[in-house]
Amino acid sequence: MLSRTADHLYWMSRYTERAENLARMLQVNVRMALLQRQSDEPDQSWAATLAMIGQLEAYRERYSAVTPERVVDFLAFDESNSGSIVRDLRAARENAHAVRGTLTSEQWETINSTWLEMRGHKLKDLSTDELIEFLEWVKFRSHLVRGVTHGTMLRDEGFNFTRIGTVLERADNTARILDVQLRLLAPGGVGQATRADYYKYSALLASVSAFEIYRRVYRDRITPARVAELLILRSDMPRSLHRCMNELVVYLGEVANDQSAETIRRAGALRSTLRYGRIDLILEEGVHEFLTGFLGRVRDIGRRIAEDFLVSTTG
C-alpha cells in the first residue's frame, strides 16, 4: 500500500478518535462543574484540561481568564483552533477524501455526512443541555465511523493502519484524561475517596464509558486505586491502556516491514509493562509519573510508525 494512503487512513482514524475523546473530556468537565459546591476551591479543571492536551498556551494567547464558556467554545467549536473538535472532524474528512478510493462507500458516506451535519449544527451560544447533546453526537458519530470500518472494510493493510491510528490515539487520550482528573481529585496521591468524591469518580468513569464496567468487574464501592487499575491495567476494558497496547501490537505485527523491528519491540515492551504491571507498584511510583512516562513512550512509538511506514525515508 502507498505510504501516503496508509498515512491518510491512520490520521483519519486518529482525528476521529481525538474528536471523540475531546468530547469525552469536555463532558466530564461539564458534569464535574455541575457537582461543584460553593465551598469548593475555585475551579481548576478547565485550566488543567487545557494544559493536559497542550492547548493552554494557545488559549492564553487569545484570552486572559479561563472561563468554562470560553474553554468550551475554544476546544469544541473554534474554527481557528487547530485542536478543536470541529477542526478534528474536518481533518478526518479531509484525510478520508484524499483516499476515497480506498474507503468503502459506506465509510466515506459516514465520515462525509458527519462533517456535513456538523456544518449544519448550531455552534454558537449553546445552552448546557445543547452542549451535552452536541458532545454526545460527536461520540456517537465516532462510534458509527468505527462500526462502519469494522463492518465493511477489507482486512488488509488499510484496515490495520486505520486501527493503529485509533488505538494509538485512544491510549494517549485515556492516559491524559486519567492523569488530569486524578490530579484534580486526589492532588496528594491516590488514597481513599470521600463520599463527595464518589460522584466525581463516577463522572470520570462515565466519561470513558467505564461506569457500568467498573460495577461489573469490582462489584464494590469506587476507590481511586481501582479506577486507575481499570483504566491502566485491565486488558478487557476497551479503552484501557493495556487493551490499546494489546491491539497495537497485533496490528503492528500485521504490517511489519524491513525497518520496523525496533518499533515493534518498543510497542511490545510497553505492552509488557502493562501486562505484568501491578497497581500497588504504580501507585507507589506515582500515577502521574507513570502516566507521564507512558505518554512519552506512546509519542515515541507514534513517531517511529510515521518513519517506518508512513513517510518514506528513502526519498
Binding site: M1, L2, S3, R4, A6, G101, E157, F161, V255, N257, D258, Q259, F309, L310, V311, S312, T314, G315
Partner: peptide, 24 residues
C-alpha cells in the same frame, strides 16, 4: 493499479519508485 500523487513517487539512480508501507 495504484493511484499516486507526485509525492508518492521518487526517482533514484534514474529509476522511478513509489513509496509504500513495504518500502520503495
Amino acid at each position: 493499479v495504484e493511484l499516486v500523487e507526485g509525492q508518492d513517487l521518487v526517482v533514484r539512480d534514474g529509476f522511478v519508485f513509489m513509496r509504500t508501507t513495504r518500502g520503495p
